Amino acid sequence: MTNSTTTRQAIIPPGTQPFYDAFHFAPATRVGDTIWVSGQVGLDAQMKPGEGMEAQARLAFEALKGILAAAGASLADIVELNTFHTALRRDLEAFTKVKDEYIPSRYPSWTAVGVSELALPELCIEIRAVAVAGCGVA
């Protein structure tokens, strides 16, 4: 038996269908109020990486914000954040500054992982998240 609390919904915001079709993954999946967001990277609308970690982090957070909005949630609803860094020690302080611009309070659980590479050689950050719609309201 399925109902609205157990139905699995792929979240595919406008403009992301080609990725869903080509790479066979949903930008996010929602079951009940819980939303799992696939890793977001620092690419602009022309699929060009941002210049440096801070620019890429902002682009990735903007993408995350848009996907959450399409799923009926916001950045304030994030309960878990996982970030993947190609230069973790060098970039962590600058990344944290950008993260705190987008998530200024009620910080989620966060795991930062250093990796040797991401999907494109120019990428330096990838962000994935779990959110619970409506929980960010104080």
Score class of each variant (00 low, 15 high):
T5I: 12
M1T: 10
D44F: 07
A10M: 03
G114Y: 15
Q40C: 15
R58P: 08
A28Y: 07
L43V: 12
M1Y: 03
A71V: 04
G136E: 01
H85K: 05
G66D: 14
L43S: 05
A60L: 04
M47S: 14
S105F: 06
T2D: 11
V137P: 00
A70R: 04
G52Y: 13
W36K: 14
K97F: 07
I127E: 01
A87L: 12
D91F: 03
A73Y: 02
I11M: 01
V113M: 15
G136R: 03
Y107W: 13
V137N: 10
A119W: 02
A57E: 05
R90K: 14
L88A: 12
T7D: 06
I35R: 03
V41M: 08
E126S: 14
A71T: 01
A60I: 06
V137G: 11
K48Y: 01
E62G: 00
V130N: 04
P104R: 02
V132E: 13
L59E: 05
G15Q: 13
D100H: 09
L123M: 09
S38H: 11
P13I: 05
A73D: 08
A112Y: 10
M47E: 10
R128V: 01
I78E: 10
P104S: 02
T111K: 15
T6H: 06
P108K: 03
A138D: 13
I78F: 06
A22V: 07
T6R: 05
A94Y: 08
D33G: 09
R30C: 07
F19A: 14
I125R: 06
P49K: 09
F25T: 11
L43H: 08
W36Y: 12
S105E: 15
A94Q: 12
L123D: 06
A129C: 05
Q9F: 01
I127F: 00
L68T: 01
L81E: 04
L68W: 03
K65N: 14
V137K: 11
F19I: 03
C135E: 12
A131M: 00
H24F: 09
V113F: 15
A28K: 08
A28W: 11
N3D: 15
V115D: 12
N3F: 08
M1W: 10
T34H: 04
N3I: 01
V31M: 14
L68G: 00
K97E: 12
W110S: 07
R58K: 14
I125T: 06
E62W: 05
P108E: 02
I11T: 02
R89Y: 07
A131T: 06
A129D: 00
A112L: 07
F19S: 10
S38Y: 02
I125K: 04
G72M: 05
D100F: 08
N3T: 10
P49C: 06
L59H: 04
Y102S: 02
N82D: 15
D33C: 07
G39D: 13
L118G: 11
P13F: 12
F84E: 10
L92R: 11
P104G: 01
K65Y: 03
